[in-house]
Design a protein around this nucleic acid. Sequence first.
DNA 1: CGGCGTCCTTGTTTTGGATCAAACGCTGGT
DNA 2: ACCAGCGTTTGATCCAAAACAAGGACGCCG
Lengths: 247, 247
Amino acid sequence: MTATIELTSPKAAHACGRQPGENYCDSCKVRSLAVCAALGPDELPELDDIVHHTRADGKTTFIHQGETAESVFSVTEGVVRLYKLLSDGRRQIIGFAMPGDFLGLALHNRYGFSADAVDDVALCRFDRRDFDNLVTAKPHFLRRLHEFATHELVIAQEQMTLIGRRSAEERVAAFLVAMRERWARIKGPSVTIQLPMQRIDMADYLGLTIETVSRTLTKLARDGVILIVPEAVRVLDEKKLLSIARA
Amino acid sequence: MTATIELTSPKAAHACGRQPGENYCDSCKVRSLAVCAALGPDELPELDDIVHHTRADGKTTFIHQGETAESVFSVTEGVVRLYKLLSDGRRQIIGFAMPGDFLGLALHNRYGFSADAVDDVALCRFDRRDFDNLVTAKPHFLRRLHEFATHELVIAQEQMTLIGRRSAEERVAAFLVAMRERWARIKGPSVTIQLPMQRIDMADYLGLTIETVSRTLTKLARDGVILIVPEAVRVLDEKKLLSIARA
DNA sequence: CGGCGTCCTTGTTTTGGATCAAACGCTGGT
DNA sequence: ACCAGCGTTTGATCCAAAACAAGGACGCCG
Protein backbone atom coordinates (compact mmCIF):
# COMPACT_ATOMS: atom_id res chain seq x y z
CA MET A 1 0.00 0.00 0.00
CA THR A 2 2.21 2.83 -1.23
CA ALA A 3 1.45 6.48 -1.63
CA THR A 4 0.56 7.79 -5.02
CA ILE A 5 2.14 11.17 -5.44
CA GLU A 6 1.92 12.58 -8.89
CA LEU A 7 3.20 16.11 -9.24
CA THR A 8 2.95 17.49 -12.73
CA SER A 9 5.69 19.90 -13.68
CA PRO A 10 4.96 23.64 -13.51
CA LYS A 11 2.56 24.88 -16.17
CA ALA A 12 2.10 21.31 -17.34
CA ALA A 13 -0.99 19.86 -18.90
CA HIS A 14 -3.94 19.72 -16.56
CA ALA A 15 -5.49 16.60 -15.18
CA CYS A 16 -8.43 17.08 -17.50
CA GLY A 17 -6.14 17.00 -20.53
CA ARG A 18 -5.93 20.68 -21.37
CA GLN A 19 -2.61 22.05 -22.44
CA PRO A 20 -0.48 24.68 -20.67
CA GLY A 21 -1.68 27.51 -22.89
CA GLU A 22 -5.21 27.03 -21.62
CA ASN A 23 -5.16 28.34 -18.14
CA TYR A 24 -7.78 26.22 -16.40
CA CYS A 25 -9.32 22.84 -16.45
CA ASP A 26 -13.06 22.98 -15.88
CA SER A 27 -12.78 21.47 -12.45
CA CYS A 28 -10.36 24.12 -11.24
CA LYS A 29 -12.26 26.93 -12.85
CA VAL A 30 -15.53 25.87 -11.35
CA ARG A 31 -14.06 25.38 -7.90
CA SER A 32 -12.01 28.53 -7.96
CA LEU A 33 -15.08 30.50 -8.88
CA ALA A 34 -16.62 29.45 -5.62
CA VAL A 35 -14.20 31.78 -3.88
CA CYS A 36 -13.23 34.17 -6.63
CA ALA A 37 -16.74 35.04 -7.70
CA ALA A 38 -15.89 38.74 -7.64
CA LEU A 39 -13.51 38.24 -10.57
CA GLY A 40 -13.99 36.82 -14.01
CA PRO A 41 -12.31 33.45 -14.50
CA ASP A 42 -9.68 35.00 -16.76
CA GLU A 43 -8.51 37.20 -13.95
CA LEU A 44 -7.47 34.28 -11.75
CA PRO A 45 -3.76 33.71 -11.26
CA GLU A 46 -2.08 31.26 -13.57
CA LEU A 47 -2.20 27.68 -12.40
CA ASP A 48 1.13 26.10 -11.54
CA ASP A 49 0.38 22.40 -11.07
CA ILE A 50 -2.33 19.93 -10.58
CA VAL A 51 -1.39 17.75 -7.65
CA HIS A 52 -2.87 14.34 -6.85
CA HIS A 53 -2.44 12.67 -3.50
CA THR A 54 -3.65 9.45 -1.96
CA ARG A 55 -3.71 8.90 1.76
CA ALA A 56 -1.30 6.13 2.56
CA ASP A 57 1.89 6.35 4.54
CA GLY A 58 2.29 9.90 5.74
CA LYS A 59 4.40 10.95 2.78
CA THR A 60 1.46 12.76 1.28
CA THR A 61 1.76 15.76 3.56
CA PHE A 62 1.84 18.69 1.17
CA ILE A 63 1.70 21.53 3.68
CA HIS A 64 4.17 21.38 6.55
CA GLN A 65 3.57 23.53 9.59
CA GLY A 66 6.33 26.10 10.00
CA GLU A 67 7.66 25.84 6.48
CA THR A 68 7.80 28.81 4.13
CA ALA A 69 4.44 29.28 2.47
CA GLU A 70 5.17 29.09 -1.24
CA SER A 71 1.88 27.82 -2.58
CA VAL A 72 -1.83 28.34 -2.34
CA PHE A 73 -3.96 25.28 -2.99
CA SER A 74 -7.51 24.77 -4.07
CA VAL A 75 -9.10 21.36 -3.49
CA THR A 76 -10.94 19.99 -6.51
CA GLU A 77 -11.45 16.38 -5.43
CA GLY A 78 -11.40 14.55 -2.13
CA VAL A 79 -10.94 15.67 1.45
CA VAL A 80 -7.87 17.18 3.08
CA ARG A 81 -7.15 17.34 6.78
CA LEU A 82 -5.46 20.39 8.30
CA TYR A 83 -3.76 19.81 11.62
CA LYS A 84 -1.34 20.96 14.23
CA LEU A 85 1.00 18.57 15.99
CA LEU A 86 2.35 18.99 19.49
CA SER A 87 5.95 17.97 20.13
CA ASP A 88 4.83 14.77 21.89
CA GLY A 89 2.66 13.64 18.98
CA ARG A 90 -0.74 14.84 20.17
CA ARG A 91 -2.64 16.10 17.16
CA GLN A 92 -5.44 18.59 16.72
CA ILE A 93 -7.20 18.61 13.38
CA ILE A 94 -8.25 22.21 12.85
CA GLY A 95 -10.39 21.54 9.81
CA PHE A 96 -11.21 19.46 6.77
CA ALA A 97 -10.90 21.03 3.33
CA MET A 98 -13.30 19.81 0.70
CA PRO A 99 -13.78 20.52 -3.00
CA GLY A 100 -13.96 24.28 -3.48
CA ASP A 101 -11.94 25.11 -0.40
CA PHE A 102 -8.67 27.02 -0.50
CA LEU A 103 -5.62 26.32 1.65
CA GLY A 104 -2.81 28.64 2.62
CA LEU A 105 -4.60 31.90 1.91
CA ALA A 106 -3.27 33.54 5.04
CA LEU A 107 -0.65 35.64 3.20
CA HIS A 108 1.71 34.77 6.01
CA ASN A 109 5.28 33.80 5.39
CA ARG A 110 4.92 30.43 7.04
CA TYR A 111 2.19 27.85 7.17
CA GLY A 112 0.52 27.63 10.55
CA PHE A 113 -0.56 24.02 10.11
CA SER A 114 0.16 20.85 8.19
CA ALA A 115 -2.13 19.31 5.60
CA ASP A 116 -2.45 15.90 4.02
CA ALA A 117 -4.91 13.75 2.15
CA VAL A 118 -7.76 11.91 3.83
CA ASP A 119 -8.66 10.01 0.67
CA ASP A 120 -7.82 10.49 -3.00
CA VAL A 121 -7.29 14.18 -3.44
CA ALA A 122 -6.74 16.50 -6.37
CA LEU A 123 -5.50 20.02 -5.81
CA CYS A 124 -4.69 23.04 -7.93
CA ARG A 125 -1.47 24.63 -6.84
CA PHE A 126 -0.84 28.34 -7.35
CA ASP A 127 2.34 30.23 -6.70
CA ARG A 128 1.86 32.34 -3.64
CA ARG A 129 3.63 35.32 -5.21
CA ASP A 130 1.21 35.27 -8.11
CA PHE A 131 -1.58 35.22 -5.59
CA ASP A 132 0.00 38.09 -3.66
CA ASN A 133 0.37 40.14 -6.81
CA LEU A 134 -3.17 39.48 -7.85
CA VAL A 135 -4.37 40.48 -4.42
CA THR A 136 -2.45 43.74 -4.62
CA ALA A 137 -3.77 44.48 -8.08
CA LYS A 138 -7.43 43.52 -7.60
CA PRO A 139 -9.18 44.93 -4.55
CA HIS A 140 -12.30 42.92 -5.35
CA PHE A 141 -10.31 39.76 -5.09
CA LEU A 142 -8.80 40.82 -1.79
CA ARG A 143 -12.22 41.63 -0.46
CA ARG A 144 -13.44 38.17 -1.41
CA LEU A 145 -10.41 36.66 0.26
CA HIS A 146 -11.05 38.65 3.39
CA GLU A 147 -14.63 37.48 3.54
CA PHE A 148 -13.37 33.96 3.16
CA ALA A 149 -10.89 34.42 6.01
CA THR A 150 -13.46 35.93 8.35
CA HIS A 151 -15.81 33.07 7.59
CA GLU A 152 -13.04 30.67 8.56
CA LEU A 153 -12.63 32.64 11.75
CA VAL A 154 -16.31 32.27 12.58
CA ILE A 155 -16.05 28.52 12.01
CA ALA A 156 -12.96 28.35 14.21
CA GLN A 157 -14.73 30.18 17.02
CA GLU A 158 -17.67 27.81 16.79
CA GLN A 159 -15.29 24.87 16.92
CA MET A 160 -13.67 26.35 20.02
CA THR A 161 -17.05 26.45 21.68
CA LEU A 162 -17.80 22.91 20.57
CA ILE A 163 -14.54 21.54 21.96
CA GLY A 164 -14.45 23.71 25.06
CA ARG A 165 -17.96 23.41 26.31
CA ARG A 166 -19.90 20.55 24.76
CA SER A 167 -20.20 16.83 25.51
CA ALA A 168 -18.90 14.00 23.35
CA GLU A 169 -22.37 13.24 22.00
CA GLU A 170 -23.00 16.89 21.14
CA ARG A 171 -19.65 17.14 19.40
CA VAL A 172 -20.21 14.06 17.27
CA ALA A 173 -23.75 15.09 16.35
CA ALA A 174 -22.61 18.60 15.45
CA PHE A 175 -19.85 17.14 13.32
CA LEU A 176 -22.28 14.94 11.42
CA VAL A 177 -24.63 17.84 10.79
CA ALA A 178 -21.77 20.06 9.63
CA MET A 179 -20.49 17.37 7.27
CA ARG A 180 -23.93 16.85 5.86
CA GLU A 181 -24.28 20.56 5.15
CA ARG A 182 -20.90 20.74 3.48
CA TRP A 183 -21.59 17.77 1.23
CA ALA A 184 -25.00 19.22 0.43
CA ARG A 185 -23.35 22.32 -1.02
CA ILE A 186 -21.06 20.22 -3.16
CA LYS A 187 -23.26 17.32 -4.24
CA GLY A 188 -26.75 18.29 -3.18
CA PRO A 189 -28.71 17.10 -0.15
CA SER A 190 -28.64 13.46 0.93
CA VAL A 191 -29.62 11.39 3.97
CA THR A 192 -26.28 9.62 3.66
CA ILE A 193 -23.41 11.57 5.16
CA GLN A 194 -20.12 10.56 3.59
CA LEU A 195 -17.32 10.23 6.14
CA PRO A 196 -14.14 9.52 4.18
CA MET A 197 -11.92 10.25 7.17
CA GLN A 198 -11.08 7.65 9.82
CA ARG A 199 -12.40 7.60 13.35
CA ILE A 200 -9.08 8.91 14.57
CA ASP A 201 -9.45 11.98 12.37
CA MET A 202 -12.88 12.71 13.77
CA ALA A 203 -11.46 12.19 17.25
CA ASP A 204 -8.57 14.57 16.68
CA TYR A 205 -10.95 17.12 15.20
CA LEU A 206 -13.40 16.93 18.08
CA GLY A 207 -10.88 16.72 20.92
CA LEU A 208 -11.91 13.15 21.76
CA THR A 209 -10.41 9.67 21.49
CA ILE A 210 -11.14 7.14 18.79
CA GLU A 211 -12.97 4.92 21.29
CA THR A 212 -15.24 7.72 22.44
CA VAL A 213 -16.13 8.60 18.84
CA SER A 214 -16.88 4.96 18.10
CA ARG A 215 -18.98 4.52 21.23
CA THR A 216 -20.87 7.73 20.60
CA LEU A 217 -21.70 6.73 17.03
CA THR A 218 -22.82 3.33 18.31
CA LYS A 219 -25.02 5.04 20.86
CA LEU A 220 -26.58 7.31 18.23
CA ALA A 221 -27.22 4.22 16.11
CA ARG A 222 -28.70 2.34 19.10
CA ASP A 223 -30.98 5.32 19.75
CA GLY A 224 -32.21 5.15 16.16
CA VAL A 225 -30.72 8.49 15.17
CA ILE A 226 -28.33 7.18 12.54
CA LEU A 227 -27.37 3.99 10.74
CA ILE A 228 -23.65 3.30 10.51
CA VAL A 229 -22.49 2.15 7.09
CA PRO A 230 -18.93 1.90 5.71
CA GLU A 231 -17.43 5.35 5.04
CA ALA A 232 -20.70 7.02 5.93
CA VAL A 233 -23.73 7.23 8.20
CA ARG A 234 -27.33 7.40 7.16
CA VAL A 235 -29.58 9.85 9.00
CA LEU A 236 -32.68 8.13 10.35
CA ASP A 237 -33.99 10.76 12.75
CA GLU A 238 -33.02 14.18 11.49
CA LYS A 239 -34.95 16.06 14.16
CA LYS A 240 -33.23 14.23 16.97
CA LEU A 241 -29.81 14.60 15.38
CA LEU A 242 -30.32 18.33 15.01
CA SER A 243 -31.60 18.71 18.56
CA ILE A 244 -28.44 17.08 19.89
CA ALA A 245 -26.19 19.05 17.56
CA ARG A 246 -27.70 22.49 18.08
CA ALA A 247 -26.35 24.62 20.88
CA MET B 1 -22.15 48.59 42.52
CA THR B 2 -23.89 49.89 39.44
CA ALA B 3 -22.73 49.94 35.86
CA THR B 4 -21.18 53.07 34.52
CA ILE B 5 -22.32 53.45 30.95
CA GLU B 6 -21.48 56.73 29.39
CA LEU B 7 -22.30 56.99 25.74
CA THR B 8 -21.41 60.31 24.21
CA SER B 9 -23.65 61.41 21.38
CA PRO B 10 -22.43 60.90 17.81
CA LYS B 11 -19.52 63.10 16.86
CA ALA B 12 -19.38 64.40 20.42
CA ALA B 13 -16.30 65.59 22.23
CA HIS B 14 -13.75 62.89 22.88
CA ALA B 15 -12.81 61.50 26.24
CA CYS B 16 -9.56 63.44 26.08
CA GLY B 17 -11.45 66.72 25.75
CA ARG B 18 -11.11 67.34 22.03
CA GLN B 19 -14.04 68.77 20.20
CA PRO B 20 -16.07 67.11 17.40
CA GLY B 21 -14.23 68.96 14.65
CA GLU B 22 -11.00 67.28 15.60
CA ASN B 23 -11.29 63.74 14.47
CA TYR B 24 -9.20 61.83 16.99
CA CYS B 25 -8.12 61.93 20.56
CA ASP B 26 -4.51 60.88 20.96
CA SER B 27 -5.46 57.62 22.57
CA CYS B 28 -7.67 56.58 19.67
CA LYS B 29 -5.20 57.73 17.10
CA VAL B 30 -2.35 55.86 18.67
CA ARG B 31 -4.36 52.68 19.09
CA SER B 32 -5.92 52.80 15.69
CA LEU B 33 -2.52 53.18 14.15
CA ALA B 34 -1.61 49.81 15.57
CA VAL B 35 -3.91 48.25 12.99
CA CYS B 36 -4.14 50.92 10.35
CA ALA B 37 -0.42 51.47 9.93
CA ALA B 38 -0.77 51.21 6.16
CA LEU B 39 -2.76 54.46 6.13
CA GLY B 40 -1.98 57.90 7.39
CA PRO B 41 -3.99 58.85 10.50
CA ASP B 42 -6.05 61.35 8.50
CA GLU B 43 -7.33 58.55 6.32
CA LEU B 44 -9.04 56.74 9.16
CA PRO B 45 -12.84 56.79 9.23
CA GLU B 46 -14.50 59.45 11.30
CA LEU B 47 -15.02 58.51 14.89
CA ASP B 48 -18.60 58.19 16.04
CA ASP B 49 -18.45 57.88 19.81
CA ILE B 50 -16.19 57.21 22.67
CA VAL B 51 -17.80 54.57 24.84
CA HIS B 52 -16.92 53.82 28.44
CA HIS B 53 -18.04 50.68 30.20
CA THR B 54 -17.47 49.21 33.61
CA ARG B 55 -18.01 45.56 34.35
CA ALA B 56 -20.83 45.32 36.80
CA ASP B 57 -24.23 43.83 36.26
CA GLY B 58 -24.36 42.43 32.76
CA LYS B 59 -25.83 45.57 31.26
CA THR B 60 -22.49 46.49 29.79
CA THR B 61 -22.73 44.06 26.91
CA PHE B 62 -22.10 46.24 23.88
CA ILE B 63 -21.93 43.54 21.23
CA HIS B 64 -24.77 41.02 21.18
CA GLN B 65 -24.33 37.78 19.28
CA GLY B 66 -26.76 37.57 16.38
CA GLU B 67 -27.60 41.25 16.27
CA THR B 68 -27.01 43.39 13.20
CA ALA B 69 -23.42 44.56 13.10
CA GLU B 70 -23.63 48.34 13.02
CA SER B 71 -20.39 49.32 14.66
CA VAL B 72 -16.72 48.55 14.69
CA PHE B 73 -14.94 49.15 17.98
CA SER B 74 -11.37 49.78 18.92
CA VAL B 75 -10.34 49.22 22.53
CA THR B 76 -8.31 52.06 24.00
CA GLU B 77 -8.41 51.17 27.69
CA GLY B 78 -9.18 48.03 29.65
CA VAL B 79 -9.99 44.48 28.67
CA VAL B 80 -13.04 43.18 26.81
CA ARG B 81 -14.22 39.59 26.75
CA LEU B 82 -15.70 38.10 23.59
CA TYR B 83 -17.89 35.08 24.09
CA LYS B 84 -20.48 32.72 22.76
CA LEU B 85 -23.35 31.45 24.89
CA LEU B 86 -25.11 28.12 24.47
CA SER B 87 -28.83 28.05 25.03
CA ASP B 88 -28.40 26.37 28.43
CA GLY B 89 -26.02 29.02 29.70
CA ARG B 90 -22.70 27.33 29.03
CA ARG B 91 -20.25 29.98 27.89
CA GLN B 92 -17.12 29.88 25.79
CA ILE B 93 -14.93 32.96 25.84
CA ILE B 94 -13.35 33.09 22.40
CA GLY B 95 -10.93 35.87 23.21
CA PHE B 96 -9.96 38.92 25.21
CA ALA B 97 -9.58 42.24 23.45
CA MET B 98 -7.02 44.63 24.86
CA PRO B 99 -5.93 48.17 24.03
CA GLY B 100 -5.19 48.39 20.32
CA ASP B 101 -7.49 45.54 19.37
CA PHE B 102 -10.43 45.94 17.02
CA LEU B 103 -13.81 44.26 17.40
CA GLY B 104 -16.41 43.51 14.77
CA LEU B 105 -14.13 43.75 11.77
CA ALA B 106 -15.66 40.73 10.10
CA LEU B 107 -17.69 42.74 7.59
CA HIS B 108 -20.50 40.32 8.25
CA ASN B 109 -24.05 41.47 8.69
CA ARG B 110 -24.37 40.01 12.15
CA TYR B 111 -22.06 39.71 15.09
CA GLY B 112 -20.93 36.16 15.71
CA PHE B 113 -20.28 36.69 19.41
CA SER B 114 -21.12 38.92 22.34
CA ALA B 115 -18.73 41.28 24.05
CA ASP B 116 -18.65 43.04 27.38
CA ALA B 117 -16.25 44.70 29.76
CA VAL B 118 -13.92 42.79 32.06
CA ASP B 119 -12.86 45.93 33.90
CA ASP B 120 -13.10 49.63 33.12
CA VAL B 121 -13.07 49.88 29.38
CA ALA B 122 -12.92 52.69 26.86
CA LEU B 123 -13.72 52.07 23.25
CA CYS B 124 -13.82 54.08 20.05
CA ARG B 125 -16.93 53.31 18.07
CA PHE B 126 -16.97 53.63 14.29
CA ASP B 127 -19.94 53.30 12.01
CA ARG B 128 -19.60 50.06 10.15
CA ARG B 129 -20.71 51.63 6.86
CA ASP B 130 -17.93 54.21 7.12
CA PHE B 131 -15.55 51.35 7.70
CA ASP B 132 -16.97 49.47 4.74
CA ASN B 133 -16.62 52.48 2.48
CA LEU B 134 -13.08 53.10 3.60
CA VAL B 135 -12.25 49.46 2.96
CA THR B 136 -13.67 49.70 -0.54
CA ALA B 137 -11.79 52.90 -1.26
CA LYS B 138 -8.40 52.00 0.22
CA PRO B 139 -6.92 48.64 -0.74
CA HIS B 140 -4.01 49.14 1.64
CA PHE B 141 -6.42 49.38 4.48
CA LEU B 142 -8.24 46.25 3.39
CA ARG B 143 -4.97 44.41 3.15
CA ARG B 144 -4.09 45.43 6.69
CA LEU B 145 -7.51 44.29 7.82
CA HIS B 146 -7.07 40.97 6.10
CA GLU B 147 -3.74 40.41 7.77
CA PHE B 148 -5.39 41.21 11.06
CA ALA B 149 -8.17 38.69 10.40
CA THR B 150 -5.80 35.92 9.38
CA HIS B 151 -3.75 36.56 12.49
CA GLU B 152 -6.94 36.14 14.51
CA LEU B 153 -7.53 32.90 12.67
CA VAL B 154 -4.08 31.60 13.58
CA ILE B 155 -4.75 32.46 17.22
CA ALA B 156 -8.12 30.71 17.08
CA GLN B 157 -6.53 27.57 15.65
CA GLU B 158 -3.92 27.57 18.37
CA GLN B 159 -6.64 27.97 20.97
CA MET B 160 -8.49 25.00 19.44
CA THR B 161 -5.38 22.91 19.90
CA LEU B 162 -4.96 24.16 23.45
CA ILE B 163 -8.52 23.31 24.41
CA GLY B 164 -8.76 20.10 22.43
CA ARG B 165 -5.50 18.42 23.27
CA ARG B 166 -3.77 19.90 26.30
CA SER B 167 -4.06 19.38 30.05
CA ALA B 168 -5.40 21.88 32.55
CA GLU B 169 -1.92 22.82 33.71
CA GLU B 170 -0.71 23.34 30.14
CA ARG B 171 -3.73 25.47 29.34
CA VAL B 172 -3.27 27.74 32.34
CA ALA B 173 0.46 28.11 31.78
CA ALA B 174 -0.07 28.90 28.09
CA PHE B 175 -2.69 31.47 29.03
CA LEU B 176 -0.33 33.18 31.46
CA VAL B 177 2.45 33.29 28.87
CA ALA B 178 0.09 34.65 26.23
CA MET B 179 -1.20 37.35 28.58
CA ARG B 180 2.32 38.34 29.50
CA GLU B 181 3.25 38.73 25.85
CA ARG B 182 0.17 40.80 25.12
CA TRP B 183 0.79 43.16 28.03
CA ALA B 184 4.43 43.39 27.04
CA ARG B 185 3.42 44.82 23.65
CA ILE B 186 1.20 47.38 25.31
CA LYS B 187 3.14 48.37 28.42
CA GLY B 188 6.55 46.79 27.99
CA PRO B 189 7.89 43.61 29.61
CA SER B 190 7.21 42.81 33.26
CA VAL B 191 7.48 39.83 35.58
CA THR B 192 4.00 40.70 36.85
CA ILE B 193 1.22 39.45 34.61
CA GLN B 194 -1.92 41.51 35.08
CA LEU B 195 -5.07 39.37 35.17
CA PRO B 196 -8.00 41.79 35.32
CA MET B 197 -10.50 39.06 34.44
CA GLN B 198 -12.05 36.75 37.03
CA ARG B 199 -11.25 33.08 37.44
CA ILE B 200 -14.49 32.19 35.75
CA ASP B 201 -13.43 34.12 32.66
CA MET B 202 -10.17 32.23 32.47
CA ALA B 203 -12.10 29.00 32.98
CA ASP B 204 -14.56 29.80 30.20
CA TYR B 205 -11.68 30.78 27.93
CA LEU B 206 -9.70 27.61 28.61
CA GLY B 207 -12.59 25.15 28.61
CA LEU B 208 -12.16 24.43 32.33
CA THR B 209 -14.04 25.12 35.55
CA ILE B 210 -13.29 27.86 37.99
CA GLU B 211 -12.13 25.31 40.58
CA THR B 212 -9.67 23.70 38.20
CA VAL B 213 -8.21 27.08 37.26
CA SER B 214 -7.86 27.99 40.92
CA ARG B 215 -6.27 24.66 41.81
CA THR B 216 -3.90 24.80 38.87
CA LEU B 217 -2.73 28.29 39.78
CA THR B 218 -2.26 27.12 43.36
CA LYS B 219 -0.22 24.18 42.13
CA LEU B 220 1.96 26.43 39.96
CA ALA B 221 2.49 28.66 42.99
CA ARG B 222 3.28 25.64 45.20
CA ASP B 223 5.83 24.51 42.62
CA GLY B 224 7.51 27.91 42.77
CA VAL B 225 6.62 28.83 39.19
CA ILE B 226 4.46 31.84 40.02
CA LEU B 227 3.35 33.96 42.95
CA ILE B 228 -0.36 34.72 43.10
CA VAL B 229 -1.17 38.34 43.89
CA PRO B 230 -4.52 40.17 43.60
CA GLU B 231 -5.45 40.79 39.95
CA ALA B 232 -2.15 39.37 38.78
CA VAL B 233 0.53 36.72 39.11
CA ARG B 234 4.25 37.27 39.37
CA VAL B 235 6.52 34.98 37.36
CA LEU B 236 9.16 33.37 39.56
CA ASP B 237 10.44 30.63 37.28
CA GLU B 238 10.13 31.76 33.69
CA LYS B 239 11.90 28.76 32.23
CA LYS B 240 9.58 26.32 33.96
CA LEU B 241 6.48 28.30 33.03
CA LEU B 242 7.51 28.34 29.39
CA SER B 243 8.33 24.65 29.38
CA ILE B 244 4.83 23.86 30.62
CA ALA B 245 3.20 26.31 28.24
CA ARG B 246 5.06 25.39 25.07
CA ALA B 247 3.61 22.66 22.91
C1' DC C 1 -18.30 48.11 63.23
C1' DG C 2 -21.01 44.22 61.48
C1' DG C 3 -23.45 41.82 57.99
C1' DC C 4 -23.75 40.52 53.23
C1' DG C 5 -22.56 39.48 48.73
C1' DT C 6 -18.68 38.19 45.67
C1' DC C 7 -14.91 35.86 44.46
C1' DC C 8 -11.48 32.66 45.45
C1' DT C 9 -9.63 28.66 47.55
C1' DT C 10 -9.71 24.13 49.37
C1' DG C 11 -11.77 19.52 50.49
C1' DT C 12 -14.65 15.53 48.94
C1' DT C 13 -17.17 12.88 45.81
C1' DT C 14 -18.55 11.78 41.26
C1' DT C 15 -18.23 11.07 36.47
C1' DG C 16 -17.34 11.47 31.50
C1' DG C 17 -14.11 10.31 28.81
C1' DA C 18 -9.30 8.35 28.61
C1' DT C 19 -6.68 4.40 28.83
C1' DC C 20 -5.81 -0.35 28.62
C1' DA C 21 -7.17 -4.70 26.60
C1' DA C 22 -9.24 -7.85 23.46
C1' DA C 23 -11.89 -9.44 19.82
C1' DC C 24 -14.11 -8.54 15.33
C1' DG C 25 -14.32 -7.82 10.39
C1' DC C 26 -12.52 -6.21 6.27
C1' DT C 27 -9.03 -6.30 2.59
C1' DG C 28 -5.08 -7.56 0.23
C1' DG C 29 -1.46 -10.79 -0.44
C1' DT C 30 0.31 -15.43 -0.89
C1' DA D 1 -8.75 -20.53 1.31
C1' DC D 2 -5.92 -18.80 4.77
C1' DC D 3 -3.42 -15.47 7.08
C1' DA D 4 -1.64 -10.81 8.36
C1' DG D 5 -2.47 -6.16 9.15
C1' DC D 6 -5.31 -2.44 9.95
C1' DG D 7 -9.29 -0.02 11.46
C1' DT D 8 -13.23 -0.41 14.34
C1' DT D 9 -15.99 -1.89 18.01
C1' DT D 10 -16.73 -3.40 22.60
C1' DG D 11 -15.45 -4.32 27.41
C1' DA D 12 -13.03 -3.26 31.86
C1' DT D 13 -10.59 -0.11 34.57
C1' DC D 14 -8.65 4.28 35.68
C1' DC D 15 -8.16 9.09 36.29
C1' DA D 16 -8.28 14.16 35.42
C1' DA D 17 -11.36 17.33 35.77
C1' DA D 18 -16.24 18.32 36.96
C1' DA D 19 -19.54 18.79 40.41
C1' DC D 20 -20.73 19.46 44.91
C1' DA D 21 -19.75 21.53 49.34
C1' DA D 22 -17.79 24.51 52.72
C1' DG D 23 -14.75 27.94 54.38
C1' DG D 24 -12.09 32.15 53.95
C1' DA D 25 -11.01 36.95 52.39
C1' DC D 26 -12.19 41.01 50.83
C1' DG D 27 -14.90 45.18 49.87
C1' DC D 28 -19.11 47.68 50.29
C1' DC D 29 -22.82 49.71 52.59
C1' DG D 30 -25.84 50.69 56.26
